[in-house]
């Protein structure tokens, strides 16, 4: 008799949980979606214009460059090298899935084939793909919050994004850590398909720009080369800059030297 009532109570509990579960899942999912969209759009905004410096350190060389970039959503972006003098005017234009480079020395535009998207960009540890943000977490990865609480004295969210099976992306898994107060990312860890950590991107020097908190410096560290790194520092970034769509064209690519 007692066992019977007990099991019935258990059943009710289970049923309640079962009914309520989708609701809690839904709330969580919404938060993840918001966070992911936030990360995707943080440096991009509707439109943006930025000046940044990039310092690359490898076993063979150290090199620093100054870059100027414009972007319009995730559709289009343009990056132009300002320094060093030797590479001044070399520009990279991304519209939808296409990337072109403009080379002022020979006055030619070349198209980067999709097979080269994972190749190094300008000798740094970033890839062409990183630069033009071709893939986004929202579209190409399925994300869940895997940690929500205090870690190292900081309230954070840890969001684990696993590549969707059919997505044409470089990484198997990306773990983003976001500060709960400012929603600024602090660390992003990139894993390959075998779940091996390949590189770590660390963010600091968070600055409030308009309503958002943006880390002004990011340091990329490849796991297999501990002596090497690429550091990008934003000297200036503005969002909501009026840019016409025609700005992101091959014609303006050649004018932007």
């Amino acid at each position: 008799m007692t066992s019977h009532t007990f099991s019935r109570r258990k059943l009710v509990q289970a049923l309640t949980a079962f009914v309520l579960m989708p609701l809690s899942l839904c709330a969580h999912a919404m938060k993840v979606d918001e966070l992911i969209r936030h990360i995707d759009d943080l440096w991009r905004g509707e439109t943006s214009q930025a000046t940044m410096s990039m310092a690359v350190k490898t076993q063979r060389y150290e090199r620093s460059m100054t870059l100027e970039s414009w972007s319009s959503g995730k559709k289009a972006s343009l990056v132009v090298i300002r320094e060093p003098v030797k590479d001044r005017g070399v520009a990279t234009l991304k519209v939808d899935d296409n990337i072109w480079n403009y080379l002022p020395k020979i006055n030619r535009v070349t198209k980067v084939p999709s097979s080269m998207m994972s190749g190094s960009w300008m000798g740094s540890h970033f890839t062409n793909d990183d630069l033009v943000k071709d893939s986004t977490f929202a579209d190409d990865y399925s994300s869940t919050i895997t940690f929500d609480g205090v870690r190292d004295g900081q309230k954070i969210y840890e969001i684990t994004s696993v590549a969707k099976p059919d997505a044409a992306v470089v990484w198997g898994k990306v773990v983003n850590v976001v500060d709960q107060k400012t929603l600024a990312p602090t660390v992003a860890r990139y894993y390959d398909e075998e779940d091996k950590l390949i590189r770590t991107l660390r963010f600091d020097e968070v600055k409030q720009i308009g309503e958002r908190f943006v880390p002004m410096r990011m340091r990329l560290q490849p796991e297999d080369k501990p002596d090497e790194s690429t550091v990008i520092t934003y000297e200036d970034i503005r969002f909501g800059v009026p840019i016409e769509d025609s700005f992101f064209s091959l014609q303006s690519l050649q004018r932007k030297r």
Binding site: V56, R63, I81, D87, L103, K105, R108, T110, M122, G123
Partner: peptide, 16 residues
């Protein structure tokens, strides 16, 4: 033919 590459001094090697 246009060739673009990363030169030994890390600059963007390009030539016709």
């Amino acid at each position: 033919l246009i060739l673009v590459t990363q030169a030994a001094d890390a600059s963007i090697g390009n030539a016709l």
